[in-house]
């Protein structure tokens, strides 16, 4: 029988994920890499990789704000959301640990990847300075994993799904989910490449990636649900804002 109901598909996906996470309990990793974990050359490399994206974010913020002053409250809201979400520990019983979502999926959708990266960089800097969360030497690596990968994954997933007429809530859900998972994928790359020494990259990378699964499977779903909820809330309350941010076309909110 052909399954057409998207609700039914989500239920199947949820149950599969729940079962998978129940039977794969083990330790897991988080995205914020602490101070001193990465060797100097790797920390420098990731910082150099992150800087052009941060500069692009600054340029876009200046440009967008000069066109439309009402853009600033949305950026302020997204900055607060990313900051709060990315330092909010959520218990994951399957792993017996706490981890946190990213918030870059929703930011990427609403303000675009460039400004989302900038927002993330600021949030990560405050966390590294005052919350003992992440580090200054690993700031660049954290920007690349959470900011660059998370924002682009969220933005591109949302745009791709909307271009093939997938409904708004499902597109938002998938954007949040993949933004979260992409972040942890990149963290695995950064960590494995930084700490491997003479060891082969792939086995260590896969080991770290697999260790993320018990924590990030459920947290990714939670992030997807949060992202879908926020997009739908804005659609109900301020559809004009979604048009303004080019999330929706004007004809999509007509009537």
């Amino acid at each position: 029988m052909r399954i057409q109901n998207s609700g039914f598909k989500i239920i199947i996906l949820s149950l599969s994920t729940l079962c998978a996470s129940l039977f794969t309990a083990s330790s897991a990793y988080a995205m914020h890499i602490s101070e001193g974990i990465l060797p100097f050359n790797w920390a420098l490399l990731w910082s150099l990789a992150a800087m052009p994206f941060v500069a692009w974010g600054l340029y876009k913020l200046k440009k967008e704000s000069s066109v439309d002053l009402s853009f600033k409250p949305l950026v302020g809201l997204m900055a607060a959301v990313v900051f709060i979400i990315s330092c909010m520990p959520i218990p994951v019983p399957t792993a017996g640990t706490c981890s946190h979502p990213c918030g870059t999926g929703i930011a990427g959708i609403l303000v675009g990847p460039a400004i989302s990266i900038l927002i993330t960089a600021v949030a990560l800097l405050i966390q590294a300075l005052f919350l003992a969360h992440g580090g200054l030497s690993t700031w660049g690596a954290d920007i690349v994993s959470m900011g660059v990968m998370g924002s682009f994954a969220g933005y591109l997933t949302f745009k791709t799904l909307r271009s093939v007429k997938i409904n708004l809530a499902v597109s938002g859900f998938m954007a949040g989910l993949l933004a979260d998972w992409a972040t942890y994928l990149m963290t695995s790359v950064e960590l494995a490449s930084g700490i491997r020494g003479d060891e082969a990259f792939m086995p260590l990378f896969l080991k770290i990636l697999i260790a993320f699964i018990p924590t990030q499977l459920p947290l990714g779903i939670l992030e997807g649900a949060m992202t879908a909820g926020m997009v739908m809330l804005l659609y109900r309350k301020r559809p004009d804002l979604l048009v303004k941010m080019r999330v929706l076309k004007p004809e999509e909110v007509a009537g």
């Binding site: 897991a28 101070e35 981890s99 960590l191």
Partner: peptide, 19 residues
């Protein structure tokens, strides 16, 4: 928090410690 307990644990196994 997995930031501390697991990343640092794995890094320590590979000779890297958090400062």
């Amino acid at each position: 928090g997995v930031d501390e307990s697991v990343i640092e644990k794995y890094a320590k196994e590979h000779g890297r410690e958090a400062r």
